[in-house]
Structure formats: C-alpha cells, structure tokens
Nucleic acid binder design. Structure first.
Ligand code: ZN
Ligand code: ZN
Ligand code: ZN
Ligand code: ZN
Lengths: 145, 145
DNA sequence: TGTAACCTTAGAGTTAACTCTAAGGTCAAC
DNA sequence: GTTGACCTTAGAGTTAACTCTAAGGTTACA
C-alpha cells in the first residue's frame, strides 16, 4: 500500500496531479487510513501507470477516460473501440503536424530571406513580407513549392 | 475610414477579436465618431493586416507585439532583432514538431499492432502496450527505430 | 513532547487567445 | 417614428491540464 507521495515518486507525477486525476475520475485509492490518507494498492498503481503511459503518448485526459472504461470491462468492448480512439488521436496529431510544418516552412523562408545583420530594419525582407496581405504574398504554405 | 465591422469583414477577423487586439495594444482606431464609433484609416488597416498576417503565420500575440514595435520604428531596430524573434519562433515550432512526430510514430505503431476488429478487447495489443509502464515498453520515441 | 514532514479539503489561479453577454446608445431606411 | 442592424463598455466564460494556497490534522522519530 503506497501513500500518495510514494505513488507520486514511483510514477513521476506530483501529488497535486494525482489528486487532480482522482477528481476527474481517472484514478482512485482503494483504501483510506482512519485519518483519511489515501492508500494505493497494486491495482490502483497499475491503473495510475496506465494513465501515465497514455498521457506520455499524448492522449488527452478525456481520451484516457475512455480507454479506462474499456480497460475495466474489456469483454464489453472491441478492438475497434480501441482503434477508433487511437485513430482519432492520430488524425488530430496529423492535422497539427501539417499546421506546424507549414509554419516551419514559412519561418524558414523568412529567415533565409533576411540578412540578420546589425544594420537597421528599414530594408528588412521579413518586415516587408509581413506587410504583404495574405492573399498577395508567397508565405502561405500552399504557395510554397 | 472603415467602421469596425467593415474592417472585420475586410481582413477576416471578428469585431470581438479586433477589440480584443486593441485592448492588448496590437491595433487601434485613429478616429472615433462623436458617438464613440471606431473609424480605421488606411494606416490602421495596414497595421491590422500586418497583425493578421503574422498571426496566420503562427506568431503569438506577444511576438506580434514585438514585431509591431520594430515596425513603428525600423530605424531603431536591426535585422537581427527581427531574425531573433523569427528564429525563436522557429525553435518553438521545431520542438513541438518533434513531440508530435514522436506521438504520430507511437500512435501508428499502436494502430498497426491492433486488428481493429469487432471481437472483444481482452486480447487487444494496444491495451497491452498501455499496460506496460514507460521504461519497459517500446513506445517511447527514442526506442523506435 | 516537540518538530518536521507528511496528509486532508475546497477552492482559487495560471495560460493563450479568444468568445460571449448584458445593458444600453446610434443610425439609415422606409 | 419605428424597425433592425449597427455600435459602445465592462466584465464574465471557455478550454485543458494542471498548479498552488490556506487552514488545519497526522505521524514518525528523537
Ligand atoms: Zn538586413
Ligand atoms: Zn531583415
Ligand atoms: Zn483485436
Ligand atoms: Zn486491439
């Protein structure tokens, strides 16, 4: 039986975060001392580790909540239920990746265009590019080869 | 002279957002009618477009604030000032890209491992992978070839 | 018996960038 | 002269995932 700070140390989350997760139904302590101290048994620890692993992968707490309901009753859920959640997350990630790649490309183009030197910015090509309104300039990702 | 809804339509932001940007010092209306209506002149519009372009690229409002101070006094700032902001943003983007790419890889591995079928999840390899605590499994980005 | 290091709860604060509401004033057109 | 579409402000609400605080109770150890 672990106390909350021991669980926190074991899985690498703060006690604050563990209580926060409990408040949101992700974990819980099966036992309490007379004084109300939380005590985590082996199953509690494994569930907390599951949460930590899922969070490290990038699942949201809401995703994790769904994964946990599958976990407690695997017989009532299918592999498809699991891949639905995973695929949905992957789609999100891919969308954000595309946005960031577009930003990366644009920023790199801007940096390549500017001398970056110490003289004044009256001739700066980055500033000039930002003056161009969106539909006129070359900065939009789609316009970049 | 444009009224706020006209400016909003012209550059594709809501009037709420324009007022929000004003509150944060990014834009402003040079004139007001007797009743207090905002009126934007040509320079105001160009500044608002600058903000919109920078925001579309992905700069934060704080970044944009810095870019605007350069913009109003280019003689007191250097190209390096501009590239510093841009490079800093690019570094941020690259960091987030790396995180997302790691997530993408992990999610793809998970999806590839699961049958995704309609039978129950007692044998699900995704669930099994999530049961493995971080330091024992193959899901960490660095561990993936 | 004292004290340091724990533990409890409820609830407020943080961050970014909006987004919306309430309550009211203004304006152009019919 | 009355709609309806606009405009104003201050300020509250949204989202996610924490993060921290206050005020107090508990426990292990010397
Ligand atoms: Zn230069
Ligand atoms: Zn430059
Ligand atoms: Zn299966
Ligand atoms: Zn499966």
């Amino acid at each position: 039986m672990l106390k909350i700070s021991e669980l926190a140390a074991k899985i690498g989350l703060s006690t604050h975060t563990l209580r926060f997760y409990e408040k949101h139904g992700l974990i819980h302590a099966s036992d309490r001392s007379e004084a109300g101290y939380r005590y985590y048994n082996h199953a509690d620890v494994r569930r907390a580790e599951f949460v930590k692993t899922a969070r490290n992968i990038g699942f949201s707490l809401q995703d994790i909540s769904q994964l946990l309901s599958i976990r407690v009753d695997k017989h009532s859920h299918s592999c498809q239920d699991v891949t639905d959640i995973t695929q949905h997350k992957l789609n999100e990630v891919n969308t954000k990746l595309a946005e960031l790649q577009s930003m990366q490309q644009t920023l790199q183009i801007l940096l390549d265009s500017c001398c970056g030197g110490p003289e004044n910015a009256t001739h700066c090509s980055i500033m000039e590019a930002l003056e161009e309104s969106e539909d006129r300039n070359q900065l939009v990702a789609g316009n970049v080869k």
